[in-house]
Design a protein around this nucleic acid. Structure first.
Lengths: 166, 166
DNA sequence: TGACGTGATGTTATAATATATCATTTCTTG
DNA sequence: CAAGAAATGATATATTATAACATCACGTCA
């Protein structure tokens, strides 16, 4: 995977013509590392679900995953998919977008982070940011009201630069 | 309704013993004003749904509302509830919490705002903040990646001060 | 090695959330 | 009041998610 630094900030969304196979390969390698480190099994089903999520930079729903798996010939039921999603989510390998009931692959599963998600309503792509200023603002506001944060959901919907200009 | 300024920041969540009937009365008056201003009809059904949402400072799901209405003797179907919810949401009288699939009443429906929601997992209460620092951080991050914001979802889960200390 | 325990997946059923569609009623306004 | 628009009623169904129990796969240690 191209490291974070390979992108200028305006390229948080990957270029349209980018070599996506590199994203996928790298994501798989990262996932393997994380599973190893956590002593968790990256089973065939988990790998399949993970790969399907990484087919694009869009978020994908559980039932779209189910359909994709079944299209591949396996007769799989919803719980199987949801279990894989839960596993991957817990390890931080994917993130759930609450406002879409959908999942997408994390770029940087190796470090804990409070991410923020930019979601383009036109092209459907999702980009994850880890912006300290946003995180700090949230933490500061929480401190002011004496709220103990356990999880945050920050989802920003609109138009990515490509879609806004073309 | 107590105006925003009546609360110190640490009282974003209302006091346990507060006079809730004042919240409800005030919310109803505000809602009427907003509907008037928008030339929108605050029908019986909409008023009922709105009042039920304001029964507490927690978020309530569509089907909990449905049950509550039916418990009151009316035989109402899901679309009726969802329509009222859509109407109220569009006017900004209530907000949807994406991570809960639930709705709760807005304190300050009269002005447009990008709100942030603190959700206590213990007592279930939701508090809305309108924190410029958070909003600004989001807008700044969006500007940096040339993203055109259309909507934001900022939901912060954890423990409110009451629940963290008792 | 092989019985066991654990974790993963299979299977069936159903719960919970949400919307499409068309019929009917109610409100507004000319 | 009549006509059109808006709201609700009613029916059906789509979409998202989980409970519960059965079976399978894998590591481990006697």
């Amino acid at each position: 995977m191209a490291s974070r630094e390979d992108f200028a900030m305006t390229d948080l969304f990957p270029q349209k013509g980018h070599d996506h196979s590199r994203c996928v390969d790298s994501a798989l390698r990262e996932a393997e590392k994380v599973c190893d480190a956590e002593n968790a099994r990256f089973t065939d089903m988990r790998r399949l679900v993970f790969s399907l999520i990484w087919k694009s930079h869009k978020a994908i729903t559980a039932y779209e995953l189910l359909d994709a798996i079944q299209a591949g010939g396996q007769r799989v039921q919803p719980p199987t998919v949801y279990r894989a999603l839960e596993f991957l989510t817990q390890l931080g390998l994917i993130h759930r977008i609450e406002s879409l009931n959908a999942y997408f692959g994390c770029d940087m599963p190796h470090h804990h982070h409070l991410g923020q998600y930019f979601i383009c309503r036109q092209c459907g792509r999702v980009a994850e940011a880890v912006d300290e200023e946003m995180s700090n603002a949230v933490r500061k506001a929480a401190r002011q009201v004496q709220f103990r944060i356990e999880a945050t959901t920050i989802e920003i919907k609109g138009l990515c630069h490509d879609c806004a200009t073309h």
